[in-house]
Design a protein around this nucleic acid. Structure first.
Length: 386
DNA sequence: GGTCCTTTGAAGCTT
DNA sequence: AAGCTTCAAAGGACC
């Protein structure tokens, strides 16, 4: 259902422009100008299809959004004849994902098949046209979450399409552009994943298909993964730290104004203070109770220099501090947001830097953890050249 | 539909 | 500097 809505939105891109154009207020004109700019890489303003860049990093410019066509797909729709030859390449890339698909009888047939496959919400991120070069093999552990995929692939659609514009804000005919801008301002840019999360991302699905774990809950899986992570040595963890560093670097480039503070203030989630069960204790922290010489008796929180689980629930004090803390952050953020530009729009130069100047991920030798725990799919993910 | 659970690491605020 | 909180992902359970 949501996909259908989003698809409708795609086709409204042009309608909206036409209907609004004659009576645009100044601010709306700015918006229209921005949108025109967004389309520049694909259209020359006269309706002619522009050749697509032949950059190796081309794939990162086309993040996947469920049911939403990126400019590449829109170009395909409106420029069918010109795109036919390109779609032929796309078909070659897509065909492995559709076993049994008969060979196309003509270039137009090929184009049609590729287009249908690309536009289908069922195709999802595994379809190469969404996030990769035609002919580029897709990693087996591609994130099923479109947002995650979007972040992974660079977070932007071609032409500065912010991640925010893709999924969460279906534009009904009554939605004004001003509203849309406001919504985009309020969009939430998520934190980059840390090393452990890259490890989880890689290994969670593999663990889930193991007999012992397939019926367990997610939290149980995370416990197990946490134990496995702890049992790994630094060398084994190193590739994941490098992935985290690369993720963070890309995040810094894409969102130079982003900060964890603002992220927190804007967060959709507002987790209530957890009412954790407090084990009976004497109110002392582990350090005080056992001393530095008996760290093996410390609770895991103290070992991680976090709040001791035996003195949690101190209640009002913490609660108050936390809430005032949040309120202050929210207040700060609101004032900040009023004047700050929308995150997520890049000029072409920046995009070039983003797609070409990033440090290459170092070559990683897969570590044999267990037979089902390998880094192969991560390696595939990072090797962006066919 | 929102929250919780459960993990680790990073960031940033408070003390 | 140390301590603490929150949030990143995942998906089933629960309200």
């Amino acid at each position: 259902m949501a996909d259908e809505t989003d698809e409708v939105k795609v086709f409204r891109v042009h309608d909206e422009d036409e209907s609004d154009a004659p009576s645009l207020a100044d601010d709306k004109k700015d918006v229209a100008l921005e949108e025109e700019m967004e389309c520049k890489p694909f259209f020359d303003g006269k309706g002619a299809f522009q050749p697509l860049p032949a950059s190796p990093a081309f794939g990162s410019m086309f993040p996947y959004s469920p049911g939403v066509m990126n400019p590449f797909q829109i170009a395909l729709m409106s420029q069918a004849a010109t795109a036919a030859s390109m779609a032929a390449n796309a078909y070659i890339a897509l065909s492995p994902h559709f076993p049994g698909l008969p060979m196309p009888s003509s270039p137009l047939d090929m184009y049609t098949r590729a287009l249908v496959a690309a536009a289908s919400p069922l195709a999802g991120p595994k379809v190469g046209m969404m996030g990769g070069m035609p002919g580029m093999p897709l990693p087996s552990a591609y994130p099923p979450n479109p947002l995650a995929h979007m972040q992974m692939m660079g977070g932007y659609g071609m032409g500065g399409m912010a991640p925010s514009t893709s999924t969460s804000t279906p534009h009904t005919p009554n939605t004004t552009k001003r509203k849309r801008i406001k919504e985009e301002k309020e969009e939430h840019i998520k934190k980059p994943k840390n090393a452990y999360f890259w490890f989880m991302d890689e290994n969670r699905k593999k663990l889930m298909i193991e007999d012992e774990w397939k019926d367990k809950q997610s939290a149980d899986l995370n416990k197990e993964l946490g134990q496995r992570w702890q049992s790994m040595n630094e060398q084994e963890k190193q590739p994941y730290f490098e992935l985290a560093k690369k993720d963070k670097d890309e995040h810094n480039i894409k969102y130079p104004n982003w900060s964890a503070r603002e992220n927190y203030a804007n967060s959709i989630k507002r987790k209530k203070k957890k009412d954790r069960t407090v084990e009976p204790g004497d109110g002392k922290k582990c350090r005080a109770r056992f001393g530095m010489t008996e760290q093996d008796k410390w609770c895991k929180h103290c070992l991680r220099k976090k709040k001791c689980m035996y003195v949690r629930g101190g209640g009002a004090d913490d609660e108050e501090r936390a809430s005032s803390h949040s309120a202050q952050r929210a207040t700060d953020s609101e004032s900040d947001l009023d004047d700050e530009p929308i995150h997520g729009t890049l000029d072409d130069d920046t995009k070039m830097v983003l797609t070409t100047n990033l440090p290459a991920i170092p070559t990683i030798t897969p570590m044999p953890l267990t037979p089902s725990f390998s880094l192969n799919s991560l390696l595939h993910r990072q090797l962006t050249l066919p």
